[in-house]
């Protein structure tokens, strides 16, 4: 069956939408269609991809206005007569066609204080129980596709990259802060440097996550509550002064 596509072509300076029609077979995904367009119509069409299995996070684009992985978006999601629009991610600078420069994310990652495990007692290896690691294992599913960064309106529309690290790095921070062995205290940085208060929890990051990580409910909101513990809750402050704050032990 022939399907119609409208794909943005261009670079950092200029560009435009171009229309393509290709015949597709049953079971194909949007990335297959893009590859066929490369073969049949535009062999200079740039698209980043790698595993084609939804695990490398490379083929992030916007399909019909929604941030998605091209390799995990099946063609039968669309009606036969629908024109499918494919664009590069809006939040990051375009390099060429559907490929964007996501290096800003790597810079954010470098700012995060790394895992700092507590000392072993009497040289005995740490023991962790499943109940304690389950919560942070969810965050480790992240494939760094940056779709959550792309859809986050603080970065996308308000362009506050200097004030907010974005949902991807909020869950990285959550995975470290909630780690049962980690002893570093990142809460002041989460509030002041990483911008937890910039997020107004409209949950689009959770909606687009291809790994179905509950970014907002399990990552960002718990971090916001920890910030409240530290900076906005006088009752908790008094409690901590009287009974100790349960600070992470060396």
């Amino acid at each position: 069956m022939e399907r119609n596509f409208k794909i943005w072509r261009g670079d950092a300076e200029k560009g435009e939408f171009k229309n393509y029609a290709v015949k597709l077979e049953q079971g194909m995904v949007v990335l297959d269609a893009i590859h066929r367009i490369q073969v049949e119509h535009a062999n200079d069409l740039a698209v980043r991809w790698n595993c084609k299995a939804g695990k490398c996070g490379s083929c992030s684009v916007e399909i019909n206005g929604r941030p998605k992985l091209a390799c995990m978006t099946r063609m039968n999601e669309f009606s036969p007569e629908e024109v499918i629009t494919v664009q590069p991610m809006k939040t990051f600078p375009v390099i060429k066609d559907l490929v964007t420069d996501v290096s800003w994310n790597y810079e954010q990652n470098k700012m995060i204080p790394p895992f700092k495990p507590r000392k072993k007692k009497n040289g005995i290896d740490h023991v962790m129980y499943q109940q304690d690691v389950e919560r942070i294992q969810e965050f480790r599913k992240c494939i760094e596709c940056y779709l959550c960064q792309d859809v986050c309106h603080v970065l996308r529309d308000q362009d506050k990259k200097e004030k907010f690290v974005g949902p991807r790095f909020m869950i990285r921070l959550a995975s470290l802060e909630m780690h049962p062995l980690d002893i570093d205290d990142r809460i002041p940085k989460i509030k002041n440097d990483f911008g937890s208060g910039m997020c107004n929890i409209t949950r689009c990051c959770t909606d687009v996550c291809p790994e179905h990580i509950q970014i907002t409910d399990n990552g960002i909101i718990p971090l916001k509550e920890r910030v409240v513990d530290r900076f906005y809750d006088p009752v908790r402050w008094i409690y901590n002064k009287l009974f100790g704050n349960g600070a992470k032990q060396e």
Binding site: E62, G65, R66, P67, K90, V151, H153, V154, R156, D157, Q158, K160, F164, G195, G197, M198, C199, N200, T202, C204, D207, V208, K224, V227, V228, F231, Y232, D233
Partner: peptide, 28 residues
Amino acid sequence: SPPACAVAGVHQKDYKGETALLVIQNIH
């Protein structure tokens, strides 16, 4: 802010999220 995911909302000159006036949300 935003009206829906990947739909352009009201662009604010200096968006502050819940750090300025809306820091009041922390009384939850």
